[in-house]
C-alpha cells in the first residue's frame, strides 16, 4: 500500500451560483495531520462530504487508501472516523445511550478506550442528549468518532463550541493520535489550532484551492525575518549596500525588512550594531499572514 491515505484529485461539485468546490486536488500522507482552512461557506464541508462518500462528485474523485469514496464508500468506512460539522444526535435519551449504540455500529466491545476519552474530555455522558450544551455535544461527537480507533480521522471543525482549555486538551489528543501513526484531516477556520498541530495546511476560498503550505516546515524555517527601523535613511542605505549575506527589502521611511539564514543572524547583529537603530523586531511567519497573502494573490486573477 502506498503511504498516501487520502487523495483528492480534481474534485468538482458545482451547486450552481458559484457555490460548491472546483478542481480541488490534495494528498494526505500516512501519519500526517492535514489542516483545511477556509472562511465560512468556502467549501470545506463539501470536500469532506465527498471524502466520506456522502456526495457524488461532478468531476474528479476522492480516494481513501486507494478506494473511491463514492463508488466504494462502504469499503472505506472501517478505516475512517468522522466528526460531522453540524452536531445533531439521533432521538435517544442520554449520551450513554448514544455512545453505546454508536459502539454497536462500530462493532466495539471493549470500552476501555471510550472511557479513557470520556475521562480525558471531562464528559458527562449521562446527561440528556437534547439538553446538552454545544460544547458537551461536540465532546460527545468527538468521543463517538475517536473511540473507533480508526486509522484515518476526518474532523469537520472539531473545536467549535469547546472552551479554550478544552481546545488545548483536544489538540493534545490530536497530537497523541498523530504519535500513534494516525492520519488526521481536520478543517477549521481558526489558524492557531491548525498552526499548532498540523503538518500541512490547505487553504480554500470560494471553492478554489488557493495554496497548500507546509506548516511543519514553516515552524522550523531555516530563515528568520526581521524588521529594522534605522534612525535615518542614509544609515539604512549604507547597511543595505554592505549586507550581502541577507535579503534586504527597503521599506518606507527609514525601515528595512531583512530575511536571513539562522546561521547568519549573529553576523547581521554585529553589522547592525554599527548603526543607531530605533527598533528591531522579529517578524513571525504566521499562517494567518500567509493566508492573507495567498488570499489576495488567489483572489487577484479573478479580479475579486
Amino acid at each position: 500500500m502506498s503511504d498516501i491515505m487520502i487523495k483528492v484529485a480534481h474534485l468538482t461539485k458545482d451547486y450552481g451560483h458559484e457555490h460548491g468546490i472546483f478542481d480541488i486536488s490534495l494528498e494526505v500522507k500516512k501519519g500526517e495531520v492535514f489542516g483545511y482552512i477556509g472562511t465560512n461557506g468556502s467549501g470545506k464541508t463539501t470536500t469532506i462530504r465527498s471524502m466520506m462518500g456522502f456526495i457524488q462528485p461532478d468531476a474528479g474523485s476522492s480516494t481513501i487508501m486507494g478506494m473511491d469514496a463514492w463508488s466504494n464508500s462502504i469499503a472505506i468506512k472501517p478505516y475512517v472516523s468522522y466528526v460531522p460539522g453540524e452536531i445533531a444526535f439521533p432521538g435517544l435519551r442520554t449520551g450513554t445511550d448514544f455512545l453505546k449504540l454508536q459502539a454497536e455500529y462500530l462493532g466495539i466491545t471493549d470500552f476501555t478506550y471510550m472511557n479513557k476519552l470520556i475521562k480525558l474530555l471531562q464528559l458527562d455522558p449521562s446527561a440528556n442528549l437534547k439538553r446538552m450544551s454545544k460544547g458537551m455535544k461536540q465532546k460527545t461527537a468527538l468521543v463517538a468518532a475517536l473511540m473507533g480507533d480508526r486509522e484515518i480521522l476526518i474532523l469537520d471543525e472539531p473545536t467549535t463550541g469547546l472552551d479554550p482549555l478544552m481546545r488545548e486538551v483536544f489538540l493534545d489528543l490530536i497530537r497523541e493520535e498523530k504519535a500513534k501513526g494516525k492520519t488526521i484531516f481536520m478543517s477549521s477556520h481558526i489558524f492557531e489550532e491548525i498552526e499548532g498541530v498540523c503538518d500541512k495546511a490547505a487553504m480554500i476560498k470560494d471553492g478554489h484551492l488557493i495554496d497548500i503550505m507546509d506548516v511543519h516546515a514553516m515552524r522550523h524555517e531555516p530563515t528568520k525575518h526581521f524588521h529594522v527601523l534605522f534612525k535615518n535613511g542614509v544609515d539604512r542605505d549604507a547597511f543595505m549596500a554592505q549586507c550581502d549575506f541577507a535579503h534586504c527589502v527597503q521599506e518606507k521611511e527609514s525601515g528595512c525588512n531583512i530575511t536571513v539564514d539562522i546561521a547568519q543572524i549573529k553576523k547581521m547583529l554585529v553589522q547592525l550594531n554599527c548603526y543607531p537603530l530605533t527598533r528591531l523586531s522579529e517578524e513571525h511567519e504566521t499562517l494567518e499572514k500567509k493566508f492573507r497573502e495567498a488570499f489576495k494573490k488567489g483572489a487577484a486573477p479573478d479580479g475579486k
Binding site: 466520506m52 462502504i74 468506512k77 475512517v80 472516523s81 460531522p84 453540524e86 439521533p90 432521538g91 455500529y105
Partner: peptide, 16 residues
Amino acid sequence: QVDCGSMAYVLATPTK
C-alpha cells in the same frame, strides 16, 4: 435524520 444530520453517525460507520 438526513436533514438534521444525525444520519452521519450511522453512515460514517460500516453500515451501507
